[in-house]
Design a protein around this nucleic acid. Structure first.
Lengths: 141, 141
DNA sequence: AATTGTTTGTTCTTATATAGAACATATAGT
DNA sequence: ACTATATGTTCTATATAAGAACAAACAATT
């Protein structure tokens, strides 16, 4: 089974590949592997081994942490964030940072969150219930 | 086959394990794997898969780049700071800041967001669609 | 709209490399 | 020297990734 944290790797490989204007074939060629493997990496039906991971990061000129989406310097950024937003010194945890990053990269979700915020508390609660049910189901599949 | 660049990984695993005063067994337990695997990692007769790599880094509280000895990350970090904070003076827009506040005061929503993040992109999209439909409706009432 | 070419996704098989267990060898403390 | 603890090695089975061939989108051109 694929580790939770590997979720972002697949997305990132695809993202950076496309950002470079490469096809899966292009990337496969550069890595000297077959194209279908790249497809699988991107669709989370396979996970590259560490050696490939290093090559990919090198090709994209990325740190491993960027490539995998596990930002080593989260804490540093968190500190900086706290410095900038002095009013909120406490309570910013690591998880929250991930939320921030997620919202930044998923503007739609950000929009929905905003709209939820704007709703009255009761409606929010009912949305939460539905969300929970949905998630329970999706996580099963 | 072991990639050249993986040389340091083995050494580092051992180094940080010992720095923590852990035996191979300790580390194996924490990773829920057998001890002999750790031995092999450290002696370069095997290479951990990416999921394990992430776990190890997390256990040692290290960046992947540190763990693997590929320190390209300072440059990346700089880039990222510019990306996040360079856009305007404060970097994170006010809206996002409100989102953060909201998530902090609504831990359930935060939880759901985390769980959504963990889902594959396609499922996320389908959740988004449902969310959108729901919001459209709730906002009417 | 049909056709071609391109890109991406899937299925199946094979091969390989890892995990784990058992065994073997250190290393340390008494 | 003798345990106990820690590490290293060998062997086998298994899991999983790689590749090939096939299939399906998708785009562009006529």
């Amino acid at each position: 089974m694929v580790h939770m944290k590997l979720e972002k790797l697949a997305v990132n490989i695809k993202h950076f590949r496309m950002q470079n204007g490469w096809t899966q074939q292009d990337l496969a060629d550069k890595l000297a592997i077959s194209r279908s493997v790249v497809t699988k990496w991107e669709n989370r039906t396979a996970v590259p081994d560490v050696a490939s991971l290093l090559k990919i990061a090198s090709l994209f000129e990325l740190s491993l942490d960027h490539l995998t989406g596990s930002f080593a310097y989260e804490q540093e950024m968190l500190k900086d964030f706290q410095r900038v937003y002095g009013q909120n010194k406490v309570g910013l945890d690591q998880e929250l940072y991930q939320n921030i990053d997620y919202l930044r990269s998923h503007p739609k979700m950000k929009e929905y969150l905003n709209r939820i915020q704007a709703l009255p508390e009761k409606k929010q609660e009912s949305i939460q219930k539905i969300l929970e049910a949905m998630l329970d189901q999706y996580e099963q599949l």
